[in-house]
Design a protein around this nucleic acid. Structure first.
Lengths: 211, 211
DNA sequence: CGTCGCTCGTGAAACATTTCACAAATGCTT
DNA sequence: AAGCATTTGTGAAATGTTTCACGAGCGACG
């Protein structure tokens, strides 16, 4: 499906466009121009059109895009027409925050399991979710048919957990641990490091003065 | 200070190199090659050398880089030789997780204040931190000499809060709200959207099969 | 039914980033 | 002190991404 390699930056923007399309849809707008979408998303109209053009031509010249139809297209492109089972590996504070994160559910990502190695946490509940024992990781992944793991475990445990997740059949990992994970070819890993984000800000603060 | 515009991707990698340098330093390594750093950081040796070369030449040919000296250089480049006062705007679960996030403190980012609009939260404590009233935002920013704000508030409140943060004198914002913020020229905003990260994973899952 | 104003879709140009490849410098060994 | 094995620093080439600019299609309106 679709031979060309699409840039990560493009995929990211598509996800952002979808957000604003849903907002427009909610407000009852029937159509939207690339210009209007760009203004909302903080980019340019040419960029919007180019991004979309990789996947087809969804607009009407002179008119713009049908808000609802484009939203449907973007959901299809992004793989959001079905739901995904997600596991939280690690049950610390950040995991607790992510469980509550309504946007995940709204987008089709269901957190159906969480595990930890701390006996004090195992068995406790977060809403409907009972925290499982990390020793049962493989069993849980298979029972719950989990495709995506969110790794919120300490750095030193991360790689071993990833190896187990991979062999248990998980296909994609969102990694919050500050380490470079090694996975077999074909697996998808996305790293998020909040401290690095702050550091790019402090870099920017420092390199001012020639404003 | 330094005329050229450095790519965001470069700055990010520098922050990552610094992590691994500190790890090497901890292990007692005296020097490290671009090759070794690259292996750890998941990039190439040429990339490491190029990234560093924008800022000077820190290595010794035939030998590599002095681990400690390079770490010092990177901290200087990234603006991590001093501490920053940070405010959490919004005191939900995610904010609660960030307060605990040890890496922020280790990197020089001190969360010295948090505010919310919910009267039930105002006055409660998170460790040493007393949650303030968002009505006092400007007062708190000035009293605590805050430079960086982490915005973890609902999307509909985000822009108004940003306007107030800007006029109160905050210089940089890490934004978790899924909206495009408008700020005066010269302000730095970095957006983090965890749902978008998951969506790039579902995109990748969908676009497989020709492996 | 022809013209007008608008906006898409898209090659081509401009710009940015990464990779390559190699001369130059360094320490070690003999 | 010369030769050798390394590894840096960096222009140049290759690759990737964004912006430009304009032909083509669409609906509205007289």
């Amino acid at each position: 499906m679709l031979a060309r390699k699409i840039a990560d930056s493009t995929v990211r923007r598509l996800a952002i466009y979808l957000r604003f399309l849903e907002e427009f849809e909610h407000q009852g707008a029937g159509t939207v121009s690339s210009e209007a979408l760009a203004a909302r998303a903080g980019t340019t109209s040419a960029q919007v059109r180019k991004d979309l053009s990789f996947f087809g031509s969804f607009g009407k010249r002179g008119l713009g895009y049908d808000v609802h139809a484009l939203a449907v297209q973007l959901r299809t492109i992004l793989g959001l027409t079905r739901r995904y089972h997600v596991i939280l590996v690690g049950a610390g504070r950040l995991a607790g925050a992510l469980v509550q994160y309504a946007e995940f559910g709204a987008r089709g990502f269901d957190i159906v399991a969480a595990v930890d190695r701390d006996p004090a946490k195992i068995g406790t509940r977060w809403g409907d979710l009972v925290i499982g024992n990390v020793a049962d990781l493989e069993k849980i992944v298979q029972r719950e048919q989990i495709e995506i793991a969110i790794l919120v475990a300490p750095a030193d445990a991360a790689q071993a957990l990833v190896d187990r997740l991979v062999s248990a059949g998980v296909s994609a990992i969102l990694n919050f641990a500050p380490v470079q994970l090694h996975v077999p070819h074909g697996m998808d890993v996305k790293n998020v490091n909040l401290a690095v984000e702050l550091e790019t800000l402090s870099y920017a603060l420092q390199h001012r003065g020639s404003t």
